[in-house]
């Protein structure tokens, strides 16, 4: 099967038989894969009706729930891993969501785009306008991405909140990891995949 490249990386970080909560699970592709290949149990949260339907068709446990209304319905430490791909920048209170992920799960796995990538810097630096690209195709007034941050910003937040970074993988748009992005991640990395814990 060919899976979204970031999901391909994440699935390797999930322990077989673990309990997983996937925040913004999309069409449920990752969860289905993990049910079948890692004996994982778990649920996906999603708000897009079409994606929810895709989850249902796949037999994935999907809950229609908006991350911005909170996650208080999940108990402390009720999951091994709480996952959120490409959604941190789209929630109203990213720091609270991060805190909640670590309350609910023993560890959290997150991916988000790096606003300090050289292309963003160049766009903003030369044009003086909010970056619009194929990868981030929205204009400032209609973007769902209301809380862009950089890798440095995220790591600073983790430091402030005493959150430990267990793994970090910095990749480009096609989720390849190059020696260059390893050298200057905050300049050359476009997407980061973090595994964090308390």
């Amino acid at each position: 099967m060919s899976m979204r490249a970031d999901l391909e990386i994440i699935q390797e970080w999930i322990k077989p038989g673990s309990r997983l909560l996937d925040l913004g699970c999309g069409d449920g592709e990752l969860l289905r894969y993990l049910y079948d290949h890692r004996k994982v149990t778990g649920y996906g949260l999603e708000i897009d009706p079409e994606k929810i339907n895709a989850c249902i068709e796949r037999g994935v446990n999907v809950l229609e729930q908006n991350l911005d209304t909170g996650l208080s319905n999940f108990g402390d430490n009720s999951f091994d891993s709480v996952l959120m791909t490409q959604a941190l920048q789209a929630v109203h209170y990213p720091d609270q969501v991060l805190e909640e992920m670590l309350r609910i799960g023993r560890e959290a796995i997150l991916t988000f785009p790096n606003f300090a990538h050289w292309r963003c810097r160049l766009y903003l630096g030369t044009r003086g306008r909010m970056p619009v690209s194929e990868f981030m195709p929205y204009t400032w007034y209609n973007t769902p991405n209301i809380h862009f941050c950089t890798f440095k910003d995220f790591e600073e937040l983790c430091r402030e909140r005493s959150i430990r970074i267990l793994d970090r993988l910095v990749v480009d748009q096609s989720h390849r990891s190059t020696w260059l992005s390893g050298l200057w991640p905050n300049l050359l990395g476009e997407i980061a995949i973090y595994r964090v814990t308390r």
């Binding site: 149990t41 989850c55 446990n61 809950l63 999940f74």
Partner: peptide, 9 residues
């Protein structure tokens, strides 16, 4: 969920 059951909503 609390009982660890399989559920969609």
């Amino acid at each position: 969920l609390a009982a660890g059951k399989q559920v969609s909503y």
